[in-house]
Amino acid sequence: MADLLFTEFLKLKRSSMFLISILGAAVAPFVVVIATFIHEPATPFNDLFYNVNLYTVLIIGAPLYGVVTTYLFNREYAENTLRNLLTIPVSRAGFIISKMLLLFMWIMMLSIIAWVLTLTLGLLTQFDGLDTSLLRNSLKQFSTGGLLLFVLSTPIILVTLVLKNYVPTIIFTVVITLINVMAGNSEHRGLFPWAAAGDISNHTLPSTYPAEYSYIIIAGTAIIGFISMVVYFTKADIH
């Protein structure tokens, strides 16, 4: 598995996707901090973190991480490298899991970058209210958001593996974002896994349903996605 993971890193060498994804992750911190600085400079630091995390998890996260996911999996089809790998041979399940491991690190890195940028920009623009407990809590919130979105990436991987194209994934993740936005004021939003992920990471889950419901729905989505994607991929014909 270490060798597989090593090759996954190697495949990213000189890849522009890395930089592009960082730019994507930087959008929310910049927009939120600058806009707040211009319109309401008296806002407490806490709100900066809250808003950046809200936008990152609910709006930017699904499409951005979706594109990263598709890049990781789809390129093996697009560049015709998969049939080489599978004939040397590599275990199909091991292959998928090493890619997921990389995806996990990538998403977590982007989450941390968003956090660091918020912190740095907030300090530069001199917002008030930063202390160690805020640092700790906000970092935890960003990581939780990243972790949940990673867990929820399995259905997105499935779509990529089955349809082998960027377009379906982009449509899928944009629909997720749209539902997140429309459900923003709904008391039932805890039942939609991606919206629930945002609320869980920001501690804003509505009390309409027990929190367990949201956890179970997220876990269910992730597990069903994972099993179907592994089953599909281990059985699929590779052309």
């Binding site: 060798d3 597989l4 190697l10 560049e79 080489n84 790998l85």
Partner: peptide, 19 residues
């Protein structure tokens, strides 16, 4: 044959050799 186009020939072969 398909290759990782952002890598050199050696790096491409290294992927196989590792696996």
């Amino acid at each position: 044959p398909g290759f990782y186009e952002n890598l050199t020939a050696r790096e491409n072969l290294l992927v196989n050799a590792k696996i």
